[in-house]
Design a protein around this nucleic acid. Structure first.
Lengths: 330, 330
DNA sequence: ATCCGGGATGACAACGTTGTCAAACTAGCA
DNA sequence: TGCTAGTTTGACAACGTTGTCATCCCGGAT
């Protein structure tokens, strides 16, 4: 910037004025400065700028997700980016893979970089450590999973309602022996979906059979093995509710290998690409990660714009998509 | 930092020394400073630090992708992140959606934020504008698509070889009328795959029939419509080579709707999640986005470590995965 | 001719940090 | 005791930028 000022024979401050489009610079000097910037390939240094600026904004936000390569997370990420570009804001992202220590490390790394705000899909179970960040004035929004020991803006899917809807759907087809495959109980959404399963069965007057319930499953292979075991054991279910997308895939694989995919009903939580091309298509309770990301980003930016109203807790509805597997009757 | 220094009754410089773990600080002062940092929730400001530091590194890199929500891009992104975390480096990402202007805007936004390096999956066809960045010392690596009018490190899939492999596979099954569905010709990878198709047919002594070739297709619906038209026209193909994953899905949908999925062979370029669960499974030429991302990140960091050797052009091999649809005989 | 108001411009400090260098201390030795 | 060498500590400038405030210049009114 000094070189630009020298070449244009003006002061530093005038260059700064031109760059920030402040009023009160004569046309002549403005063009001279512009030409100098061109000629020297001058690049504004946003960090130095935000260091000095009174608002200290860095035009950068941080996003912490379970795994940026996972379709749910990456759709969310993209939706946030879409809102952010409109404001000229860039997005820093990190994956945490259910690692609580990594969550804190990422928050700290983002804090060091003075992000303006944070969207978090948390893995940990105590977010009181974020109180410091809040004191520092950084707003954050939780997505997909609620914060613990901390009140903050939240955007969640309707986990309980979605699960209940899925079970209700299977019950309506005549199923009474509905197996449940669930992710790690330490994950809040898994707990909520399981709660939905139990609530709906109870509401329908069906006794819950522990032999049909398999919790703490992680990944396709685990679900496949467990489904195979379930189906070949005594008291096999007539329907399966898989509470996470990888578990749905595992369950489907197992049913296919057993040749049972047209005899045993299957409903999965969270949509799967191509699920409609399978035979039978997989009926799912679809979440709407794009909507969740958009709402979360909008909330965050509203806070950045100075909104100090009480915390907001949004619930994004789920949608049952019938594709065949969930409409099989016992 | 000033407050920390005051509370610990030491100078600013000593606090700085403790934070950066510089040697030559007595244990007593170090603990006193540590306690003060704790008590005041002090957060290091990385930007101010990198502003003053002699190397000026920001421990942040930028990644420009076609669409961070697309599975290929997000797998790449994740692989880059995996390499970056090991070095305590954070990743800024942006999507460009085949928009050349957006590409330049993103590069400029990253440059303003003084990223240490850039991984680019380009949309534009002239990268000479990056010469300025290079002069500024920012290294960049191109992935998936090569740079134009600029020499830079590159990590590409074997587009020509992969396409040839696919065509060869279909030819070996006895197919002679192989249709080609291609993406926008403006995309370099699309051009290369088309080149592979032509080369291999010529090598096998098969005359190329323009009636079997459909270029500049974008998305599932376009491919579906075109496939339907192809199949119902005169001189219908006995096999289809779809040169991009969405086109593969579209072609598959069309074949299914026509009830032809077991009679017409299909090979797709780029793998698709769940393709193995379909009936028939879809045979694909799989790329390896994780390997591409890892290699690109490694290259970038090697440059950041001072490697000044000539530019490197890596080609990541593709792999034919037989799943049924490509093994149908005419 | 003098004064006034308003717009254009620049000098300088400050943002939070680290590099440089000098000062202060310690221990060891003659 | 005085001197040296080494270790610990701090004062100060600098990184690239913007906020504050003073100065300068011009036309118009007195």
């Amino acid at each position: 910037m000094r070189e630009v000022a020298a070449l244009a024979r003006v002061s530093l401050k005038t260059v700064s004025r031109v760059i920030n489009a402040e009023p009160g610079v004569s046309a002549e000097l403005a063009t001279r400065v512009g030409a100098a910037i061109e000629r020297l390939d001058y690049r504004h240094n946003l960090w130095a700028s935000s260091l000095r600026r009174v608002d200290g904004k860095s035009a950068t936000i941080g996003v912490i997700l379970e795994d940026i390569a996972n379709p749910f997370s990456s759709t969310l990420h993209r939706a946030i980016e879409n809102v952010a570009v409109k404001r000229g804001v860039l997005v820093l992202a990190g994956s945490l893979e259910e690692d609580e220590a990594r969550e804190r490390a990422l928050v700290s790394a983002f804090a060091s970089r003075r992000v303006d705000g944070l969207v978090i899909m948390p893995a940990s179970h105590d977010h009181s450590y974020l109180l410091n960040e809040r004191k520092a004035g950084t707003p954050f929004v939780f997505v997909d999973r609620p914060p613990a020991f901390l009140d903050a803006d939240t955007v969640l899917a309707d986990n309980v309602g979605g699960a209940r809807h899925g079970i209700q759907h299977l019950h309506a087809q005549g199923h009474r022996r509905i197996a449940y495959l669930g992710d790690l109980q330490s994950i809040m959404t898994a707990t909520l979906r399981y709660q939905g399963y139990r609530e709906e069965l109870t509401a329908q007057g069906v006794t819950i059979d522990p032999r049909l319930i398999r919790l703490d499953l992680r990944g396709i292979e685990a679900a496949e093995a467990v489904t195979t075991a379930l189906m070949s054991g005594e008291a096999a279910p007539t329907a399966i509710f898989a509470a996470q997308n990888l578990l749905t895939i595992g369950a489907y694989r197992a049913l296919r290998r057993l040749g049972q995919q047209h005899r045993v009903a299957l409903v999965g939580f969270d949509d799967i690409l191509l699920a409609d091309l399978l035979d039978p298509g997989i009926t799912v309770i679809a979440q709407d990660p794009a909507a969740m990301g958009t709402r979360a980003a909008e909330l965050l930016f509203r806070r950045l714009d100075g909104d100090r109203s009480p915390t907001v807790h949004l619930v994004i509805p789920t949608r049952l998509i019938e594709r065949g597997s969930g409409e099989i009757r016992p």
